[in-house]
Simulated assay, not measured.
Amino acid sequence: MADHSSHDDHGGHDDGPEPTRGYAPGGHGTPGGLALAANGLRLEPAATRFDPGESADWTYRIVGEDGRVVTDFEAAHGQRSHLILVRRDLTRFQHLHPDMESDGAWRVEGLSLPDPGVYRAFVDIVVDGQPTTLGFDLFASGPGEIEARPDSSHRATADGYDIELRTDGVAARERSRLTFEIRRDGEPVPELGAYLGALGHLVALREGDLAYLHVHPAETASDSGRVEFGARFPTPGRYRLFLQARPAGVLITTRFDVRVDA
């Protein structure tokens, strides 16, 4: 299992980047992850309660309408299942790639929910050519603090890199271009390596219900220091963006906040 995570501030074209994918029953433009069942599939986690900061092996299964465990999955971005974990205050973020066992159970070795709180687990899968995102809440017991979030944040730092989100404004239901510039010591990074088959990976979560949008990158030059995404946000409101990129072979995860206008 590959672990691409961050617990702090440090996740076919039609005349432009591929559309935002929500992986919900309504199609790629519809937010996903709002339900444990969609597209004839159901997410069944083995456990939902954890001790914060303690590692434990965890499994989940995907079950079809006939009650049978689904075992035939197609790869998307080089993996047959993507697991995104986000605390519901939109702070803690993990991007994991579980391994499927012979009985169809997906195993996450040493899963840890770092702090008390409620976490949303998003499972991205493709079955019979249909991409789907299923969601389920996990709980880490104990007192915790809810972190305040800015109304808008377009700059972040991670591992010595400075990342800036450059956009002139975002409107609901319209195609928006999100450009991230990655610099080190004031200069654009000379090379962006591939991560999951592209120059970046972006997840957008809507404040209030954590509606999940998986945004695909446009094709940009790896030596430009930039990675661009085309996104279509379904409703006005605030969204938190988790960007993952790999400058100079170092995987970084940063977060940004945007307000989408009506």
Rank of each mutant, 00 (worst) to 15 (best):
H95R: 15
L96A: 04
H97F: 15
P98G: 10
D99R: 12
D99P: 09
D99A: 15
D99S: 13
M100Q: 15
M100P: 06
M100F: 03
E101D: 15
S102Q: 15
D103N: 14
D103I: 04
G104R: 06
A105E: 12
W106Q: 04
R107S: 01
R107W: 00
V108T: 15
V108W: 00
E109T: 08
E109H: 10
E109L: 05
G110I: 02
G110E: 09
L111W: 03
L111A: 03
L111N: 06
S112I: 03
S112E: 06
P114A: 08
P114Q: 06
P116E: 11
P116M: 07
G117R: 09
G117M: 06
V118L: 08
V118H: 06
Y119C: 09
Y119Q: 10
Y119K: 09
Y119N: 12
Y119P: 14
R120L: 07
R120G: 08
A121P: 07
F122R: 11
F122D: 12
V123M: 04
D124W: 00
D124P: 02
D128M: 01
D128W: 00
G129M: 05
G129C: 08
Q130A: 06
Q130H: 03
Q130D: 09
P131A: 05
P131D: 10
T132L: 01
L134C: 04
G135D: 10
D137G: 07
D137N: 14
D137F: 01
L138G: 12
L138E: 10
F139V: 10
F139M: 06
F139I: 07
F139W: 04
A140I: 02
A140G: 11
S141P: 06
P143A: 06
G144N: 09
E145Q: 11
E145C: 03
E145M: 06
I146A: 14
I146M: 13
E147T: 09
E147V: 08
A148F: 02
A148Q: 11
A148D: 14
R149A: 11
P150R: 04
P150V: 02
D151V: 04
S152I: 06
S153F: 00
S153A: 13
R155M: 03
R155F: 01
A156E: 11
T157M: 06
T157F: 02
T157W: 00
T157P: 05
A158D: 15
D159K: 11
D159Q: 13
D159H: 11
D162R: 13
D162M: 02
I163N: 09
I163S: 10
E164F: 00
E164W: 00
E164Q: 14
L165K: 12
L165T: 12
R166Y: 00
T167N: 15
D168Q: 13
G169W: 05
G169D: 14
